[in-house]
Design a protein around this nucleic acid. Structure first.
Length: 469
RNA sequence: GGCCCCAUCGUCUAACGGUUAGGACACAAGCUUUUCAAGCUUGGAACCCGGGUUCGAUUCCCGGUGGGGUCACCA
């Protein structure tokens, strides 16, 4: 399942939920050649991760029977026979080669190929094995209403005698989906706009069956980031579950996807799934295609990460932190303390992995190793002067009680001195003494996390190094 | 190529005849608790073109242009 399919499913879900409707996950597995082992499970896993749940599906048959088309063959055969009996269908008398020849001839003459130009004079009986073609009842211009696009129309060239039942006995999508929608009582069909051009064919089949078509809800295409074409598997559309392994939250993906091709009518953008259901309506669906922009998805992910409870955040984080780092932090009871810090620095959980591997958490648990050079602020290279400042800072910190040891308090105590001496002169060495890194959170935060003893120890160590230098 | 659909900042979008064309992401600058991140402030940035209709068009109509889709015993 890729982004496009998920978006269609999501809109159908939002609409169904909003209107107390019933969502059906129907598996259209009528192409045996393309069947892939495990794909039904994969689709279900994807939808389940995103929280798109349905009333009837592969393991939950409805009053209409199975939701898997390969298990509904009797219905298609019955309806095929019905069309045959009514004179709306006929067996295809041609071989593949003959049809290919027709098609090539049409191409050579630069006219569109239409099978109905070759419709046999007498329509033979159907043995149930030959491919069965639909006999278009009336060649005419079709006009129909689409819940998003309004009035749509297409000319007669869009109509043709398409295949209903294939040579292998399976129905085509064109036929099967209409039979099933009818039998399952489907009221609304959500699909992307590549289906607009085949709608006249569907309408002609509905006519022949004497069935009232459902309401068509045409969704705009999701385009590739550069807008050059529809987002497809071949050009960068990932499997949705890859977003899970990359550390995206399902609610973020749902939120972002809902906003490609739909808008809530306000300036707000961050919504939970439930809020989306509440606000969803067909008349806010966009007609024009929209590009899938991963940068904005990342922003949504951050917004939703910010909304997680610390417990939930930690649960996700533990799945992404490198094992050894996680173990050390856990042992020293630092994991919970680091939550706010990790939370404000990431857009996806995968970044925790990268940060962990880059050593951005190790100095909380272990005394950092570094060069004396790093301790010196950029405009003062005198080691003894820096040592003196750290020494004074140390004396200030010693006055804070064990109980009062919080980043706010630490800052309160150190700040006036830093102001007086020059912030960079005091704060850079202090931060470096604690982290051993050219980049890190501010010294007060680090000190607050590692605790008084460890802080004083690290500063003393830095002073020693400076003295020796 | 035939047919069909679509057209507002780089991107996602608001506007349903009268607005300094709004918001968000991204970008740039500044501020901020030295650095990184975050945060805050500010800024640049769009109505595809041409005709109509109208007192007035981003908005309605027509044409063009551009983009997308579709022309299977695939879905």
């Amino acid at each position: 399942m890729h982004i496009g399919g998920v978006r269609t499913a999501l809109f159908a879900y939002l609409f169904a939920k909003k209107n107390n409707g019933t969502l059906i996950l129907r598996i259209e597995d009528t192409d045996q050649a393309r069947a892939i082992e495990g794909s039904i499970q994969h689709i279900q896993d994807s939808l389940s991760w995103l929280g798109i749940d349905f009333e009837y599906g592969p393991n939950k048959p409805g009053p209409f029977g199975s939701c898997i088309q390969s298990e509904r063959m009797d219905s298609y055969k019955a309806f095929a026979q019905k069309l045959m009996d009514a004179g709306h269908a006929y067996p295809d008398p041609y071989t593949h080669e003959e049809i290919t020849a027709f098609r090539e001839a049409a191409k050579a003459e630069k006219r569109p190929f239409l099978f109905r130009d070759h419709r046999p004079k007498t329509l033979g009986a159907w043995d149930g094995k030959a491919p069965l073609r639909f006999k278009v009842p009336e060649i005419k211009r079709y006009r129909w209403n689409d819940a998003v696009r309004g009035e749509l129309e297409a000319g007669e060239e869009a109509l043709d005698d398409f295949i209903l039942m294939k040579g292998d006995g399976y129905p085509t999508y064109n036929f099967a989906h209409i039979v099933d929608d009818h039998l399952m009582g489907v009221t609304h069909i959500f699909r992307a706009d590549e289906f607009i051009s085949s709608t006249p064919r569907f309408l002609s089949l509905y006519d022949a069956l004497g069935v009232t078509p459902p309401i068509f809800v045409t969704l705009p295409a999701i385009l590739r980031d550069d807008r050059t074409k529809k987002l497809g598997k071949r050009d960068g559309a990932k499997d949705v579950l890859e977003y899970r392994t990359e550390g995206y939250l399902p609610e973020a993906l749902v939120n972002y996807l809902a906003l490609i091709g739909w808008n809530p009518g306000t300036d707000e953008e961050v919504f939970t799934k439930e809020e989306l259901v509440q606000r969803f309506s067909l008349d806010q669906i966009q007609k024009s295609g929209g590009a899938f922009n991963e940068t904005k998805l990342r922003w949504f992910n951050r917004e939703h990460i910010l909304k997680l409870t610390p417990e939930k955040f930690l649960k996700y984080a533990e799945g992404f932190l490198p094992k050894e780092i996680k173990a050390t932090l856990k042992k020293k009871d630092l994991l919970e303390k680091l939550v706010p810090l990790m939370r404000e620095r990431i857009q996806t959980f995968e970044e925790l992995k990268e940060m962990g591997e880059a050593g951005e958490f190790s100095f909380y648990a272990e005394t950092p190793e570094y060069h004396v050079k790093g301790l010196l602020p950029k405009d003062d290279t005198d080691t003894q002067r820096t040592a003196a400042k750290l020494k004074y800072t140390l004396s200030l910190l010693e006055t804070i009680s064990e109980d009062g040891w919080h980043d706010q308090k630490i800052k309160e105590i150190v700040w006036p001195y830093a102001e007086q001496e020059g912030r960079a002169q005091v704060l850079w060495p202090l931060r470096y003494a604690l982290s051993g890194k050219p980049k890190s959170p501010d010294p007060f935060t680090i000190a607050g996390i590692i605790g008084k003893d460890e802080t004083l120890e690290r500063i003393s160590h830095a002073i020693e190094l400076l003295h020796r230098a």
